[in-house]
């Protein structure tokens, strides 16, 4: 479904991503872990078309991606951002946020679709005409997920979708993402700094450090400690150390 080959992303003279290659099958989840500045989010933003200055080869569903994406691309690929406080327009109601994709793509029947979308992410219909600042962090992230699903995409790019949330809300959102994937056969690429979160949702994952993907492995290898790169081992140790406390 998704293939990325030798992706290089530049910010001016700096190469933030240096030759990253991975592939994700249809209906699969792929996770990218790394510390801040490792380039993990940059990979995702380049895939989403939010960053023009890249080279390499990326395809989604067999279609090669150019620097500018057409409208059709955005019907197939959507993204959920880290900070639910920042990813919703502060002056637009939830209703407006959810109608926007429908208007852009000329999809009718907005009323029914919006009600259905809210129900799908388990939000009460009373939030429909509220503003983002009237909702809790978890509710906002559900709205962001509902918005991403409005045009029925095949691929969802998740940029630290739970790291700004409380742990109990994180569990709810992770369960929701798992349910949605089952129901809609979505393909996920998820980025996080949290190894346990990635391993929970993604059977396959890549570890990034300094703009390079230093290791690719399966979640079960990671759990079992079958890792080859010292950075992966470090991250794993930090994560398990606290669990065993």
């Amino acid at each position: 479904m998704i293939s990325v080959q030798d992706l290089v992303v530049r910010f001016g003279p700096v190469e933030a991503v240096r030759g990253v290659t991975f592939a994700v099958g249809e209906g699969q989840s792929f996770g990218i872990v790394g510390e801040s500045g490792s380039g993990k989010s940059t990979v995702l933003r380049a895939l989403a078309g939010l960053n023009d200055d890249w080279s390499g080869r990326m395809t989604i569903g067999g279609v090669a991606l150019g620097p500018k994406r057409g409208r059709a691309f955005f019907r197939r690929v959507q993204m959920v951002f880290q900070d639910p406080y920042g990813s919703l327009h502060p002056r637009q109601t939830i209703d407006r946020a959810l109608s926007e994709p429908l208007i852009v793509h000329g999809i009718g029947d907005a009323d029914r679709r919006i009600r259905q979308a809210l129900a799908e992410v388990a939000l009460p219909s009373s939030v429909r005409f509220r503003f983002p600042h009237q909702l809790s962090g978890g509710q906002r992230q559900r709205v962001a997920i509902a918005r991403a699903l409005m045009c029925e995409p095949e691929v969802l790019l998740l940029d630290e979708p739970t790291s700004a949330l409380d742990v109990s809300v994180q569990a709810e959102v992770l369960n929701l993402l798992a349910d949605l994937q089952d129901r809609r056969k979505l393909t996920y690429v998820m980025v996080s700094h949290n190894l346990a979160v990635i391993a929970h949702l993604c059977p396959q994952l890549g570890v990034m450090q300094g703009g390079e993907m230093v290791e690719m492995l399966s979640a079960s290898d990671l759990r079992a400690g079958r890792v080859s790169h010292p950075h992966t081992a470090d991250l794993r140790r930090l994560s398990t150390e606290l669990e065993e406390a």
């Binding site: 569990a171 346990a196 398990t240």
Partner: peptide
Amino acid sequence: GLLECLPSLSHPQTRLPVM
């Protein structure tokens, strides 16, 4: 609840318990 709803590397769960 706070402890159980955390995803864990050593104890995988298919579904996280919700508080």
